[in-house]
């Protein structure tokens, strides 16, 4: 299989702060790829650079054979969509679920809106009863489902996931992770997923990259990580930390 997303020597600078220092990666079509790291590792910045939300100062990003320039066209956003970390901040406070889902359809001039909205709500397990609610009438998990529905409604082939469950309770996290796996299988999506939690990444992704301070530490397959076959100390530290507290 060929590379679907290719990132080469990517640099992002915010006001003289180098958030990404020449990072490269390759994601194959239909693959689920994880980015793991602690705060300040640049993992979220990488996602934002792909979507055009972070300023790229050097390097190239290629998605499905097209090398991206400074601006993204509408066709790009039909291919690539993103789910944000904080479900409390990613839904407009004055819009109903219906309005939120209608917006992408209106922007892209898609006609069969009614059908798509109903299908999207069904697909994320919300159903019609949620269609006319405001964000404040939804729980965190329901909000994240709406955010996923919004990302899916344009029928993209790539979904960028920025810590999609870190603001949720553990039981809700499981539901949302299951939902994401299910839509990925059904729609044959490519995932690029960011998390600070190694367990989530190994659960969701086939390959992953460990990042620290804006650089790649190492690239692993999930099975290498599970088998503790890692070469960098930093990764080993992360693995140990994910075991929980151990009294000396």
């Amino acid at each position: 299989m060929t590379a679907f997303i290719t990132v080469e020597g990517l640099e992002v600078v915010f006001d003289r702060f180098r958030a990404l220092k020449g990072v490269s990666l390759e994601v194959r079509e239909g693959e689920s790829y994880g980015l793991v790291g602690e705060s300040g590792s640049g993992k979220s910045t990488l996602l934002r650079a792909i979507t055009g939300l972070a300023p790229v100062s050097a390097g190239t990003i290629t998605v499905n054979g097209k090398t991206l320039g400074k601006t993204r066209d509408k066709a790009f956003y039909r291919e690539v969509q993103m789910v944000f970390q904080d479900p409390y901040g990613s839904l407009h406070p004055r819009q109903t679920v219906d309005r939120l889902l209608q917006e992408p359809l209106a922007i892209h001039g898609i006609a069969d809106g009614e059908k798509r909205i109903e299908r999207a709500l069904d697909e994320v397990g919300l159903g019609k009863g949620f269609r006319f609610r405001y964000a404040h009438q939804l729980s965190g998990g329901q909000r994240q489902r709406v955010a996923i529905a919004r990302a899916l409604i344009l029928e993209p082939s790539i979904l960028l996931l920025d810590e999609p469950t870190s603001a949720l309770d553990a039981s809700v996290q499981a539901e949302v992770l299951n939902l994401l796996e299910e839509v990925r299988r059904r729609r044959k999506l490519t995932f690029l997923m960011v998390s600070h939690d190694l367990a989530i990444i190994t659960h969701m992704c086939e390959r992953l990259m460990v990042m620290q301070n804006g650089e790649a530490v190492e690239t692993l397959t999930a099975s290498q990580l599970i088998g503790q076959r890692v070469s960098e100390d930093y990764t080993r530290n992360l693995l140990r930390a994910s075991e929980g507290f151990v009294r000396a």
Partner: peptide, 16 residues
Amino acid sequence: SDYIKAVQLMGASPFR
């Protein structure tokens, strides 16, 4: 805020 970013990622024009 993320909800404005989300609309940007829908491909909405600044005017919209």
